[in-house]
Design a protein around this nucleic acid. Sequence first.
DNA 1: CTGAAAGCGCTTACAG
DNA 2: CTGAAAGCGCTTACAG
Lengths: 209, 209
Amino acid sequence: MSSVKEVAEVAGVSVGTVSRYLNGQQLKAANMAKIADAIQQLDYKQNIIAKGLKNNQSFSIGLLMNSISSRFGAEVVSGIEAIVEKQGYSLLLSGFNGDAQLVNQKIDYLMAHAVDGLIVFLADEEWQGMEKLAQMTIPVVSINSPNQLVNVDSILVNDRTSVKQAIQHIISLGHQKIGMITARQTDYGARERLAGATEAVALAPMFHW
Amino acid sequence: MSSVKEVAEVAGVSVGTVSRYLNGQQLKAANMAKIADAIQQLDYKQNIIAKGLKNNQSFSIGLLMNSISSRFGAEVVSGIEAIVEKQGYSLLLSGFNGDAQLVNQKIDYLMAHAVDGLIVFLADEEWQGMEKLAQMTIPVVSINSPNQLVNVDSILVNDRTSVKQAIQHIISLGHQKIGMITARQTDYGARERLAGATEAVALAPMFHW
DNA sequence: CTGAAAGCGCTTACAG
DNA sequence: CTGAAAGCGCTTACAG
């Protein structure tokens, strides 16, 4: 792998100038051309690692999740990955496969790898030590994990309302006997969905559960 | 985040000594104790990024795969992740979601992030530029992707033989009419499985397909 | 066993 | 606009 130093030599400018070029600064046209040539010739690629060292960035973001191997989990990973990569960042994956005890350790692990941001996707597990997230010095966002931490942005599917509306719709159609198959009630989302159904029924005076 | 420098100051030794301690070298017991204390006190964590810069290691390995969102794909990711992490490495995920054109670009991307190794999991796509892998200066292993590149270790499921044996077993039981539902034949594995079935039948003289 | 110093590849004030 | 130099956090010969 060639370095800025080699590029600088070939182009006949200083490394600082090469660096500036790489970062999109304007410089004398002649120099820009020379540097561009040198880069071509050496097949130079930036070393993202070194780049980040200066300002302590890693250009990677951590994804901490429970069940990578669940269907929904996989979709989420795939979606996040696409976006992250588009921005030139990389995705560091870390799963804890149901063992909530491991979460703290995983966080340390991700921090050691200096992720610039963290996405937490707990899916079906509750986790006691969530406050740790609030102390994080990097941006944290949680998905599908109820919490009211001040520094943590959250994405929650509105399970309750959507199921409620669905049931209300069914009721409005005049149906009298409605069955519901629920998921294990260990999952926050599953509980919300059942709650939504219960609400819908409670609001329908004519309806007997 | 504290650095070796701060640890060195607190412990009253040089940074080199701290570094040696961190890397498990033997040093004067008194110093080891002082350093251990300082680390405790500062809650010092190694900066893996900086550590890798010296010998150009990133302590991360890249996983390039087609369909993260397939069931099998998710299992594979999950399994790999567990192992990789156990070794103190991180997993950089990169998907190309069916667009084989993107693969070269993704490889560059992973290289820019200086992965120390690469796992390629093509699943259902063939890919023309696979020779690029052979030129890689880092270890590469492919999963479920037929190839005969010298530098690339491959893991292949023996689809052909296993299906062949299954069919032979059914035949040996005396069954006369055997149906087979095949996957889309765009996938190498799917073709192999069908081929295995065909072989089994061809070898059974009494049997009419 | 340990300190001082150089170096990994890059960025960025500071001068000019 | 650009060069020389210092610095990011760590490692590692080189001396002692």
